[in-house]
Simulated assay, not measured.
Amino acid sequence: MPKSYPNSVRRQISHRLRSGDTVADIGTETGISPATLFRWKAQALIDAEVRGGVPSVESDELASARAHIAALEAELALTRDVCALFDDQSVAPPKGRSRSSKD
Rank of each mutant, 00 (worst) to 15 (best):
R99S: 10
L72C: 07
E73V: 05
L78F: 03
L76C: 10
P93H: 11
E58N: 14
F86W: 14
S100G: 09
A92K: 15
R80Q: 05
S100I: 06
F86V: 13
A92V: 10
D87N: 15
A74S: 12
L85H: 06
T79L: 15
C83H: 07
A84K: 04
H68A: 15
R97C: 14
L78C: 06
L72S: 01
L72A: 12
G96L: 05
A71S: 14
K95G: 08
H68V: 09
L76K: 10
I69A: 05
L72I: 01
D103Y: 10
F86E: 11
T79H: 04
S90W: 00
R99Q: 08
S100L: 14
E75M: 08
L72Y: 00
K102Q: 11
C83Q: 10
A84H: 03
D103Q: 11
R80V: 02
S100K: 08
V91Q: 11
A70G: 01
I69Q: 13
S98F: 04
D60M: 06
A77S: 11
R99D: 02
R99I: 06
E75I: 00
A71I: 04
A70R: 15
K95N: 11
D103W: 14
R66Y: 01
R97G: 11
D60L: 08
L62N: 00
V82P: 00
A65L: 07
P94H: 03
E75V: 00
R97M: 09
V82H: 06
H68C: 07
D81T: 04
A92T: 15
S98W: 03
C83I: 07
A74Q: 13
L76M: 11
I69G: 02
V91Y: 07
K102V: 11
L78D: 02
S90V: 05
